Measured scan of single mutants.
Amino acid sequence: TTVHIGNVTYHFDNPEEAVKWAKEMAEKLGLRIEIHGDTIRVE
């Protein structure tokens, strides 16, 4: 599972961890997340 924040990509072996981490980052940055299969974007 990959999480994209701007130009930076993070890789997670556990999809649930990826979603949890992306949600925390989105809250901190005042952004929202979009999930497309195994790709998560924070925008």
Rank of each mutant, 00 (worst) to 15 (best):
T1E: 02
T1Y: 10
T1N: 05
T1I: 12
T1A: 12
T1L: 07
T1R: 05
T1Q: 06
T2A: 08
T2L: 11
T2W: 13
T2M: 09
T2V: 11
T2P: 03
V3D: 01
V3G: 01
V3R: 00
V3C: 02
H4I: 15
H4C: 05
H4P: 01
H4Y: 14
H4S: 09
H4Q: 12
H4T: 09
H4K: 10
H4M: 14
H4G: 04
I5G: 01
I5H: 05
I5C: 04
I5Q: 02
I5V: 10
I5T: 03
I5L: 11
I5A: 03
I5E: 01
I5W: 06
G6P: 02
G6A: 10
G6K: 09
G6I: 08
G6V: 07
G6S: 08
N7M: 10
N7R: 10
N7A: 13
N7S: 13
N7V: 09
N7H: 12
N7I: 08
V8I: 13
V8T: 14
V8D: 14
T9P: 06
T9Q: 12
T9N: 07
T9M: 12
T9R: 09
T9L: 11
T9G: 06
Y10C: 04
Y10E: 04
Y10A: 05
Y10M: 07
H11P: 05
H11M: 10
H11R: 12
H11V: 10
H11I: 10
H11T: 10
H11Y: 14
F12W: 04
F12N: 00
F12S: 00
F12K: 00
F12R: 00
D13R: 07
D13G: 09
D13A: 12
D13H: 10
D13N: 11
D13Q: 12
D13P: 09
D13M: 11
N14T: 10
N14L: 08
N14R: 09
N14Y: 08
N14M: 07
P15Q: 14
P15C: 04
P15F: 15
P15A: 14
P15D: 06
P15K: 15
P15M: 15
P15L: 14
P15G: 12
P15T: 13
E16K: 12
E16A: 13
E16Q: 12
E16R: 09
E16T: 11
E16I: 12
E17Y: 11
E17M: 10
E17H: 09
E17L: 12
A18T: 02
A18L: 02
A18Y: 01
A18F: 02
A18K: 00
A18G: 08
A18Q: 00
V19P: 00
V19R: 08
V19N: 06
V19E: 07
K20C: 03
K20L: 12
K20Y: 08
K20N: 12
K20M: 13
W21R: 02
W21G: 00
W21S: 01
W21P: 00
W21L: 03
W21F: 14
W21A: 03
A22N: 00
A22R: 00
A22C: 03
A22E: 00
A22K: 00
A22M: 01
K23D: 05
K23G: 08
K23F: 11
K23I: 13
K23W: 11
K23T: 15
K23R: 13
K23V: 12
E24W: 13
E24S: 10
E24V: 10
E24M: 13
E24G: 07
E24T: 09
E24I: 10
M25F: 07
M25W: 06
M25L: 11
M25I: 13
M25E: 09
M25G: 01
A26K: 02
A26D: 01
A26S: 07
A26H: 02
A26Q: 03
A26T: 03
E27R: 06
E27H: 09
E27M: 07
E27Q: 09
E27Y: 07
E27P: 01
E27D: 14
K28S: 12
K28E: 13
K28D: 08
K28R: 12
K28T: 09
K28L: 14
K28I: 11
L29V: 05
L29K: 05
L29P: 03
L29R: 04
L29I: 05
G30T: 03
G30D: 11
G30N: 14
L31N: 06
L31C: 04
L31K: 06
L31D: 06
L31R: 04
L31S: 13
L31W: 15
L31M: 15
R32I: 15
R32G: 15
R32L: 15
R32Y: 08
R32W: 14
R32N: 15
R32H: 15
I33T: 04
I33Q: 02
I33Y: 14
I33L: 14
I33M: 10
I33R: 00
I33G: 02
I33P: 04
E34H: 09
E34R: 06
E34N: 07
I35G: 03
I35H: 07
I35E: 05
I35R: 03
I35A: 05
I35P: 03
I35T: 06
H36A: 10
H36C: 04
G37F: 04
G37N: 06
G37P: 04
G37I: 03
G37Q: 06
G37D: 06
D38A: 09
D38E: 07
D38M: 06
D38T: 12
D38C: 04
D38G: 07
D38N: 15
D38V: 05
D38W: 03
D38Q: 10
T39K: 06
T39S: 10
T39C: 05
T39H: 11
T39G: 05
T39F: 06
T39M: 08
I40F: 01
I40A: 01
I40R: 00
I40K: 00
I40M: 02
I40W: 02
R41V: 14
R41L: 14
V42C: 03
V42A: 04
V42F: 07
V42T: 04
V42I: 14
E43C: 02
E43R: 05
E43Q: 11
E43K: 06
E43P: 06
E43W: 13
E43N: 09
